[in-house]
Design a protein around this nucleic acid. Structure first.
Length: 803
DNA sequence: TAAGTACTGGTTTTT
DNA sequence: CCAGTACTTA
C-alpha cells in the first residue's frame, strides 16, 4: 500500500475497494519476460508458436493481428491468466475491453475457468460499461449527478425531434435521424458544437441550423443530466484530460490494458485507450514516475464492419506508428473452418485492395462443399433453409449448432413465418425487441423519472401514460413554467396547483407527482422490483392495460409482469444492486440474455451480430445485390469493401457446413421486386460451390426447363431430395408466390387431425398425416406430401384444410 | 382531450 | 408492409 494521504484524499480506496489491491508504483510490469514461466506452463499447452509468443510477450505495446478463427480469444484469455498466475499483476490491475457484452461475458467466463475464480476486481467490460462506471464514480467530483440517465438512440431521436420542431429546422431538411447520425459522427471524432462551428461555413444557413440543433441538444442533455451513447466515451476522455489527477488514478490502477476487436474502435475510443495507457502525471504529492500501462490490442482489419459508425481502420493499420516500440504478431492458422470454407473466404476478401495479404489456412481438410440455393422468393428461400435444417436435424445435428444469418432485420419476417409453420425452434439474437416495446419503455421512463428527476424526456413520457387527461397543451405550459422558473419539469408538477389549470388536470398532475414521490422514497431502501410494482400499480398503467378492450394490451400487461420478473432476477444476482445499477445494466446490456437460453434452438441474427461467433452449420441468406452489398452502402466510398468484409465475416463463422442462398424476387414494402445475385458470389471459385439451384437456372417468372434439369441433377445427390425439385412444376403454374403468409388462414382453431387424414396445403399440395405430436396450440402434424415430401406443420396456423 | 381515420413516407448494420 | 402523423370528429 502506498498509504499516502493523497490516495485517500482522492478516494482511490474507492477504486480498489473490491480487494486489498495496492496501488503499486513500482510494480514489475515489464522487462521480465518469462518471469515464472513454469507457473504459466499449462497456459501455453496446445498453443502454436505465434499464439504462445502472444501470450508470453512482455512490452509496452503489442498488436495481435488475428485472422478469423485463429484463436484470438484464447490468446487474450491465456495472456490475462498468465499475468495473474505469474504474479505479474493483480486482477484489479487488468482492464480488458470488448466491443459487445456477449464478448465480455465470454471472456470473463473463460478467464475464470483458467484461473479457477480469482477474477474478482478485474475489469472485463465493454467500452461503454467501463466509461459509465468511471463517470458515475467521478461524476460528483465534477459537479454532475451520478444518477445520470443513459439515452439510447431512440431517446436521442425523440429529443432531437422536439428540438428540430422548435427550431423550425425541418425546413433545412433535418430529421431526427439524420441529425442524430451527424451528431454521433462528430462526437466520435471528439468534436462538440463549438469546435464544429469554428470549422463550419457559417454563412450557410444549413450549417447554422445544424449548429443550433447540436447546441440545443447538448444543452438539453446537460439539463436532464443525461448522456447519449457517444457521450459516455467522449465525456470520459474529456474528464481525463481536464482532470489529470483523476486520470492518474486509473492510469496507476490499470497496468495492463487489453482491447479486443481493435479494428472497430473509433477515434474517441482510440483517444480513451491513449488516456488509459498514458504515464500518469505527477499529482503534486506523488511524482509521475510511473510508466504507462502496457497495451495489448487484438484485431483483424478484414473484419472491420463498423466504419459506418465511425470505426477508423487507421487505428489498427497505424498501430506501430502510434505506439513506439510496438510488436506485431500475426495469427493465420485457423482452427475453426474447413479448407473449402476458408478458400472461399480468402478468395472473397482478396478482392479488397489496400489490405495486407493474409491467408487463412487449416490442417483439418477440405470438408464438404459449400451449398448454394436460389429460391423464387424470400419465402421459397426460407423454406429451403427450414427444409435443410430439418434434414440436418434428423441426421443428428443439434439445432443449437445451426445459425441463419441475414443482412437486414427485415429479412427475419419470411424466415420466422416459415420456421413457425415448420415448428422449428429458433431464437432471434440481438433483436432487442423486448426493451423496445412501448410499454417497457414506459415502465423504464417511470423508473428513470424516479432515479433522475431532472430527466425531462422521461417525465414527458410518463406524464400522460396512461391517459389521464394531461394533453400536449398542458405539458407545454408545465415545461415553459419550468424553463422560466429555472427548475425541472418534475418540480413543475409539484407546483401544479398554483398554475391555474382546471381542477381535473391539476388533480391528475398532483397524483402523478405523488406516485413518483412515493416510489422515490421506496427507491432509497433498495428493492428495484418493489419500486417498479408500486409505480405500475399506483400510476394506473397496469390497470389501464388490463381493463383495455384492445386484445394486445393483455400481452402488454404480461410484458410488464415479465419486466418485474427481470428486476427480481436482477435482485437475486445483485443483492446490493440499486435502481441506478439496474437501469445502467439494462440500457447497456440489451441483449446479454442471449447467452443462456439459445441452446437447443436455431440462432437467427444479422451478419453484424454474428461477428465473434461460430457455428457448425451456417446459412447465409439473401446474398443479393441491394442487400449484400446493401444498396445504401453501394455508393458510399468504402461501402462495397466494407460489405465484402461483412460477407467475409459471415463465411468465416462456419465450422463444417456453409449454405449460401438468395432469392430471385424479394418482398419489400409489400411489393415484390426482382433481385439479382450478389456480385460477391462470383468471387468464390465455382468448384467450391455445389448449386442445388443456381441463379442461372431460375428466372423471375418461376421454374424453367433448365431449372428442372438442374434440380434433378443436384437433387439426386442430396439426401431425400424431398422439397426443392418436386415443387418446381406446381409452383410454375401459379401466378403468384406465397409471399403473403400473413393473409392466409392464421388460425385453424381446433382443427382435429389424426394419422391417416388427407389434407391440402396451399403450397405443398395434398398429403397424408403421418403423426401428430405436441399439445394445445403447439400441436404439430407430420405430413407426407404427395409431391413436396415430408414436412412438419404447426396445425394452428398452417395454411391447410382437411379433405 | 381522445379516439378514429386517411395518409404519408421510409426502411443498414449497434453500444 | 408498417409506423408514425396529420387531420377529423365527438
Amino acid at each position: 500500500m502506498t498509504g499516502t494521504p493523497t490516495s485517500d484524499a482522492h478516494g482511490s480506496d474507492q477504486i480498489t475497494s473490491d480487494s486489498a489491491t495496492p496501488v503499486i508504483v513500482d510494480w514489475p510490469t515489464s522487462g521480465i519476460p518469462g518471469g515464472g514461466q513454469t507457473a504459466s506452463g499449462h497456459l501455453l499447452d496446445g498453443l502454436n508458436p505465434q499464439q504462445r509468443q502472444a501470450v508470453e510477450y512482455r512490452g509496452k505495446a503489442l498488436l495481435i493481428v488475428a485472422g478469423a478463427g485463429s484463436g484470438k480469444t484464447r490468446v487474450l484469455t491465456h495472456r490475462i491468466a498468465a499475468l495473474i498466475e505469474n504474479r505479474e499483476a493483480w486482477p484489479s490491475q487488468i482492464l480488458a475491453i470488448t466491443f459487445t457484452n456477449k464478448a465480455a461475458a465470454e471472456m470473463r467466463e473463460r478467464v475464470e475457468e483458467l484461473l479457477g475464480g480469482r477474477t474478482e476486481g478485474m475489469w472485463i467490460s465493454t467500452f461503454h460499461s467501463a466509461c459509465v462506471r468511471i463517470l458515475r464514480r467521478e461524476a460528483e467530483n465534477l459537479g454532475l449527478s451520478k444518477n445520470f440517465t443513459i439515452y439510447d438512440s431512440s431517446d436521442s431521436r425523440v429529443l432531437l425531434k422536439r428540438i428540430i420542431k422548435r427550431n423550425d429546422a425541418d425546413m433545412y431538411g433535418f430529421t431526427p435521424a439524420n441529425a442524430a447520425a451527424k451528431i454521433s459522427k462528430l462526437k466520435n471524432e471528439l468534436a462538440d458544437a463549438d469546435s464544429y462551428a469554428r470549422n463550419a461555413n457559417m454563412s450557410d444557413p444549413n450549417e447554422v441550423a445544424f449548429v443550433e440543433i447540436f447546441r440545443d441538444y447538448q444543452r438539453e442533455l446537460l439539463r436532464a443530466s443525461a448522456f447519449d451513447f457517444d457521450d459516455l466515451i467522449a465525456q470520459t476522455v474529456y474528464l481525463f484530460r481536464a482532470f489529470p489527477q483523476v486520470a492518474a488514478r486509473y492510469q496507476k490502477k490499470f497496468r495492463h490494458v487489453l482491447v479486443d476487436e481493435y479494428q472497430d474502435t473509433n477515434h474517441a475510443q482510440y483517444a480513451l485507450i491513449r488516456e488509459f495507457t498514458r504515464a500518469p502525471e505527477a499529482d503534486g504529492f506523488l511524482p509521475g514516475t510511473d510508466e504507462g500501462a502496457s497495451l495489448t490490442v487484438v484485431g483483424d482489419s478484414d473484419q472491420s464492419i463498423y466504419a459506418f459508425r465511425g470505426a477508423d481502420i487507421r487505428n489498427i493499420v497505424e498501430f506501430e506508428r502510434d505506439f513506439t516500440g510496438a510488436t506485431v504478431i500475426l495469427l493465420e492458422q485457423n482452427y475453426r473452418s474447413t479448407q473449402n470454407i476458408l478458400s472461399a473466404a480468402n478468395a472473397v476478401i482478396a478482392n479488397n485492395f489496400d489490405r495486407k495479404d493474409k491467408k487463412l489456412w487449416t490442417d483439418i481438410g477440405d470438408g464438404e462443399k459449400i451449398i448454394g440455393f436460389t429460391g423464387y422468393s424470400g419465402h421459397d428461400e426460407a423454406q429451403f433453409v427450414a427444409d435443410e435444417i430439418e434434414k440436418l436435424h434428423s441426421d443428428g445435428v443439434a439445432y443449437g449448432d445451426i445459425a441463419v444469418f441475414y443482412r437486414t432485420n427485415a429479412q427475419t419476417r419470411a424466415l420466422e413465418e416459415i420456421f413457425v409453420r415448420s415448428a422449428l425452434p429458433y431464437k432471434i439474437m440481438g433483436g432487442t425487441k423486448f426493451y423496445e416495446r412501448a410499454e417497457i419503455k414506459d415502465a423504464f421512463a417511470y423508473l428513470t423519472a424516479v432515479m433522475n428527476p431532472a430527466d425531462e424526456l422521461a417525465v414527458r413520457r410518463i406524464i400522460n401514460t396512461p391517459k389521464r387527461g394531461i394533453g400536449p397543451a398542458t405539458v407545454t405550459q408545465l415545461a415553459s413554467f419550468a424553463e422560466n422558473a429555472e427548475t425541472t419539469l418534475r418540480d413543475a408538477l409539484r407546483e401544479a396547483s398554483t398554475l391555474g389549470f382546471g381542477p381535473k388536470v391539476t388533480r391528475a398532475i398532483s397524483d402523478v407527482s405523488a406516485v413518483l414521490d412515493e416510489a422515490s422514497a421506496l427507491a432509497d431502501q433498495g428493492k428495484v422490483s418493489e419500486v417498479l410494482t408500486t409505480l405500475m400499480q399506483k400510476s394506473g398503467l397496469i390497470d389501464s392495460l388490463r381493463m383495455s378492450r384492445d386484445p394486445q394490451d393483455e400481452a402488454r400487461a404480461e410484458n410488464i409482469d415479465e419486466l418485474v420478473a427481470v428486476t427480481k432476477e436482477f435482485e437475486r444476482n445483485n443483492p446490493d444492486g440499486t435502481l441506478i445499477d439496474f437501469l445502467t445494466e439494462v440500457s447497456l446490456v440489451a441483449a446479454a440474455d442471449d447467452l443462456d437460453d439459445a441452446s437447443g434452438t436455431v440462432s437467427l441474427m444479422t451478419l453484424h451480430t454474428a461477428k465473434g461467433l461460430e457455428y457448425d452449420t451456417v446459412f447465409l441468406t439473401g446474398v443479393e445485390e441491394d442487400l449484400l452489398p446493401h444498396r445504401m452502402s453501394a455508393n458510399e466510398p468504402g461501402g462495397p469493401s466494407e460489405e465484402r468484409r461483412l460477407f467475409y465475416v459471415g463465411i468465416t463463422r462456419a465450422r463444417k457446413r456453409l449454405f449460401l442462398s438468395l432469392a430471385m424476387t424479394r418482398a419489400q414494402y409489400g411489393e415484390t421486386a426482382v433481385a439479382m445475385p450478389s456480385r460477391y458470389l462470383q468471387e468464390i471459385p465455382a468448384e467450391l460451390i455445389e448449386w442445388r439451384q443456381s441463379p442461372g437456372s431460375v428466372n423471375s417468372r418461376g421454374g424453367t426447363q433448365s431449372r428442372a434439369l438442374n434440380a434433378r441433377r443436384w437433387g439426386a445427390g442430396s439426401a431425400g431430395g424431398s422439397g426443392t425439385d418436386a415443387r418446381a412444376l406446381p409452383r410454375a403454374e401459379k401466378k403468384e408466390w406465397p409471399n403473403k403468409v400473413t393473409n392466409m388462414v392464421r388460425d385453424n382453431g381446433d382443427l382435429e387431425l389424426v394419422a391417416g387424414d388427407r389434407i391440402r396445403h396451399s403450397d405443398f399440395g395434398e398429403g397424408r398425416v403421418q403423426n401428430v405430436t405436441g399439445a394445445g396450440t403447439k400441436r404439430v402434424a407430420h405430413v407426407q406430401f404427395d409431391t413436396a415430401g415430408a414436412k412438419k406443420l404447426l396445425i394452428k396456423i398452417a395454411p391447410i384444410e382437411k379433405l
